[in-house]
């Protein structure tokens, strides 16, 4: 089995399907142990770069969405001064009931934002928040390609495709 795989263009240690064979795994491990120190340091540096890039993306996404959401929330109260009333009359239940209208499609969201409606701005901020993890996966794909780590690049690419697919499946 393994001797046959050596003649394949995939190279030693891989079977006909291109998967790593048991033998190949051992070679890989042995190879790994020999260079463990150098490789270890190299791997550490690679992971570190990816970590810093991802941490930065997350922080930017978080700060931007907080600012937008807080601004939108301010506008909601500014436009509807009844929200402030201390002596009731306007219960929060009217706002949180299922009948209360708010934008939940891109057309109505666009309208709402151009009117500088608080609800629309809040939803925009929430969408930025939702897109932050997607962006962080995309940065992960690019980082792993850049650091020449094909297995992890493929893994993150699959996650990105499923994520983007989920938005299309939702009919966004």
């Amino acid at each position: 089995m393994t001797s046959a795989s050596h003649s394949k263009s995939d190279g030693p240690g891989f079977d006909a399907k291109g998967d790593l064979t048991e033998d190949g795994m051992h070679q890989f491990a042995r190879h790994h142990r020999q260079l463990s120190r150098e490789e270890g340091v190299l791997m550490e540096e690679k992971i570190r770069k990816v970590e810093l890039a991802i941490s930065l993306v997350l922080r930017i996404g978080v700060v931007v969405s907080v600012v937008v959401i807080a601004f939108g929330l301010g506008l909601m109260f500014f436009h509807h001064s009844a929200y402030f009333s201390i002596r009731g009359g306007f219960s929060y239940r009217e706002l949180t009931s299922q009948a209360s209208p708010f934008p939940h499609s891109f057309a109505s969201l666009g309208n709402s934002i151009t009117r500088l409606d608080g609800q629309g701005i809040v939803v925009l901020g929430v969408l930025i928040l939702i897109l932050t993890p997607v962006l962080r996966v995309a940065v992960g794909v690019l980082s792993f390609i850049y650091e020449k780590d094909p297995p992890m690049a493929l893994v993150t690419l699959y996650v990105l495709v499923v994520l983007i697919g989920s938005f299309f499946l939702a009919g966004v």
Binding site: V66, I69, L73, Y92, H104, Q119, L127, I130, S166, V172
Partner: peptide, 24 residues
């Protein structure tokens, strides 16, 4: 969560008056 958030947004389950204080 992001993988199912799109569905919730379209179905109108993300209400701004609840989502804003929660997110912040």
């Amino acid at each position: 969560a992001a993988a199912s958030a799109g569905v919730y947004f379209i179905r109108g389950q993300i209400d701004p008056i609840i989502a804003a204080p929660v997110a912040v």
